[in-house]
Amino acid sequence: MTLSRGETFELKVTPDPYVAIRYAGASGDFNPIHIDEEFARSVGLPARILHGLWTMAQVARAHTEAAGGPERLRSLSVQFRGMGMLGAEITVTGTVRAVEGAVATVDSEARQGGRRIIRNGVAEVTVD
């Protein structure tokens, strides 16, 4: 697939209530703020929250699906801001900033309910 300058892509995903449980098991990150509702509230959170790295994996997936495969994602850098909540739709957007040779530089962010939970995403993706 080709990604040309100025092109945008989008991925929408709604994390179901058990995503954080499955991701804890898959990743080994069992921080109770992600898996224990009572604990999360006891430390002042509104509810259990998503793992930031799960959300980053959605940003990565937006790129690999747009570019045509996992081998095309060469680098990805993000900043985490705010909290990702379970049960509410997340929209990842990517915008191709530049293409030089076979490498596209893509800016990205992830929003949930109008809040940017990942920002300043920058990726390098190989293109045909």
Partner: peptide
């Protein structure tokens, strides 16, 4: 757990057909 859909991550035959020795870990 992260919602990958590519068969490269799940299907041994698909991964081998694509030239990989086994299923491919997402980046």
């Amino acid at each position: 757990a992260v919602g990958e859909t590519s068969p490269l991550h799940f299907d041994l035959v698909a991964a081998r057909d694509a030239g990989y020795a086994d299923v491919v870990a997402p980046p």
